[in-house]
Amino acid sequence: STVKVRLGHLEVTLHNVSEEDVRELRELWKNGADEEDLRRWLEEWKK
């Protein structure tokens, strides 16, 4: 499914993403990950 995730002022649209992935991303964000960390996660996730 396609999910729009809003993290601060960063809005990311993920395609074919699982609930688990979204949860993981939100956890990262809650734990103080900055945009760099999130971008890195997204790069990994896209592979």
Rank of each mutant, 00 (worst) to 15 (best):
16 N>C: 05
15 H>Q: 08
11 E>W: 10
4 K>E: 06
28 L>W: 07
6 R>G: 03
8 G>M: 02
1 S>I: 15
40 R>Q: 12
3 V>T: 04
14 L>T: 00
10 L>P: 00
4 K>Q: 09
42 L>I: 15
38 L>Y: 04
29 W>R: 12
38 L>V: 06
6 R>V: 14
2 T>R: 09
26 R>N: 15
16 N>Y: 06
28 L>D: 01
2 T>Y: 05
45 W>K: 12
46 K>L: 15
10 L>C: 11
21 D>K: 14
44 E>V: 04
6 R>E: 04
35 E>I: 11
18 S>T: 12
45 W>N: 06
1 S>Y: 10
4 K>S: 10
19 E>W: 10
47 K>M: 06
31 N>A: 09
2 T>W: 04
14 L>H: 01
25 L>G: 00
19 E>H: 08
7 L>T: 03
21 D>W: 15
46 K>A: 14
11 E>T: 11
15 H>R: 07
47 K>Y: 04
17 V>I: 11
35 E>L: 12
7 L>R: 02
31 N>R: 07
18 S>Y: 04
9 H>P: 11
35 E>Q: 09
46 K>V: 14
32 G>F: 04
15 H>I: 09
30 K>G: 12
2 T>M: 10
5 V>H: 01
15 H>W: 04
43 E>V: 04
19 E>Q: 12
25 L>A: 01
16 N>V: 02
10 L>S: 09
7 L>Q: 02
42 L>K: 00
20 E>V: 09
9 H>A: 13
19 E>A: 13
18 S>C: 04
2 T>C: 07
15 H>L: 08
31 N>P: 09
36 E>R: 08
6 R>Y: 06
5 V>Y: 00
19 E>N: 08
39 R>F: 11
11 E>Y: 06
11 E>H: 09
35 E>W: 09
41 W>M: 02
1 S>Q: 15
45 W>G: 03
23 R>I: 10
17 V>A: 08
44 E>K: 14
32 G>C: 05
5 V>P: 00
26 R>D: 15
41 W>V: 02
18 S>M: 07
44 E>M: 07
26 R>G: 10
7 L>W: 07
30 K>D: 15
35 E>D: 10
16 N>H: 11
33 A>G: 10
45 W>C: 04
21 D>A: 15
36 E>G: 12
28 L>P: 00
13 T>M: 07
5 V>A: 02
26 R>H: 15
34 D>A: 10
31 N>K: 09
17 V>R: 01
31 N>S: 12
3 V>Q: 04
1 S>A: 15
24 E>K: 15
30 K>N: 14
37 D>L: 12
26 R>L: 13
15 H>D: 07
37 D>R: 10
17 V>G: 03
20 E>N: 10
2 T>I: 10
14 L>I: 12
20 E>F: 06
29 W>M: 15
14 L>F: 04
31 N>V: 05
7 L>E: 01
31 N>D: 13
28 L>E: 02
13 T>N: 04
20 E>M: 09
28 L>K: 05
29 W>H: 15
39 R>H: 08
35 E>A: 09
30 K>T: 12
7 L>K: 03
22 V>H: 07
46 K>M: 15
39 R>Q: 10
4 K>N: 08
26 R>Y: 13
28 L>H: 04
3 V>L: 06
19 E>I: 10
45 W>R: 11
7 L>N: 02
23 R>Y: 12
19 E>R: 06
8 G>Y: 02
32 G>A: 05
10 L>I: 14
38 L>M: 08
21 D>C: 08
11 E>V: 10
40 R>A: 12
18 S>V: 04
18 S>I: 03
35 E>K: 05
27 E>M: 04
16 N>K: 05
29 W>A: 15
19 E>P: 11
4 K>T: 15
1 S>T: 14
3 V>C: 03
30 K>L: 14
22 V>P: 00
12 V>R: 02
20 E>L: 08
34 D>L: 11
12 V>Q: 02
40 R>M: 10
21 D>H: 13
43 E>I: 05
44 E>A: 13
